[in-house]
């Protein structure tokens, strides 16, 4: 080592300091690495919401020429680009060479399972909130393992505005409330058609 060693004491101190220095360096690299797996969960339910039969993309695209010009496509007609579309075209996010990957602004390739990195490039605050479980939604255990939703589970990436949905029925007004003692099969059923119990079972089985 290039450090002049005056005594074993100083040598020991030096080693300790180097140890800490490298520790902090690692810590620093760790934090500054946008892809540290630490603060980003690695489990999602359900998987990316592909249209049926569309993935892997390379099934078709391995044999297709890459065409970078902005144009009406003869394929993927169901996709309407309404997301800062003036400034943007498909291949800004989709990787031209390997269509099974997405591409970040810095050229880094990511998988569809981690598309939130792509969104996070432009929607930084929301990405931060999402990681904390505040934008979007986490399920699972409030004091244990949690499942996230990808941004694209709620937002169609090509036209991301949240789509309106049908509300469940309003409550019965007090003046219309009438009580009838009923047989079991006549009692009004809960209008909820959710499978949230099944979903919950899912969580339990996964962890």
């Amino acid at each position: 080592m290039g450090i002049p060693l005056q005594s074993s004491y100083i040598r020991a101190m030096g080693l300790v300091m180097m140890f800490f220095a490298s520790f902090f360096l690692i810590q620093y690299l760790h934090v500054s690495d946008a892809f540290s797996s630490d603060d980003i969960p690695d489990y999602f339910v359900p998987p990316p919401p592909f249209s049926e039969g569309i993935y892997p993309c390379s099934d078709c695209h391995a044999d297709l020429e890459v065409n970078e010009t902005r144009r009406e496509l003869d394929f993927h007609e169901d996709i309407v680009l309404k997301h800062a579309e003036e400034q943007r075209w498909c291949l800004d996010c989709h990787n031209p060479a390997d269509r099974d990957k997405l591409r970040l602004a810095n050229g880094q390739l990511i998988s569809f399972e981690t598309s939130y990195h792509l969104c996070g490039q432009c929607h930084g605050t929301i990405f931060r909130d999402w990681k904390a479980g505040v934008h979007g939604k986490r399920t699972g255990y409030w004091n244990g393992k949690k499942q996230y939703r990808l941004c694209v589970h709620c937002h169609n990436p090509h036209s991301p505005r949240y789509k309106p949905i049908e509300p469940l029925p309003p409550p019965i007004r007090p003046d219309e409330l009438k009580y009838t003692k009923s047989e079991d099969d006549k009692i009004p059923r809960n209008p909820l058609t959710s499978n949230y119990k099944a979903e919950r079972k899912d969580v339990k089985e996964k962890h």
């Binding site: 934008h135 979007g136 399920t139 004091n143 709620c154 949240y162 909820l192 949230y196 979903e199």
Partner: peptide, 24 residues
């Protein structure tokens, strides 16, 4: 919720827009 681990309240779990937050 009073379990270790405990699931989120039903309203939190179902909310499709993730508007509902719960914790300690």
């Amino acid at each position: 919720t009073r379990e270790e681990p405990g699931t989120y309240p039903a309203c939190v779990e179902i909310c499709p827009v993730g508007a509902r937050k719960f914790g300690n």
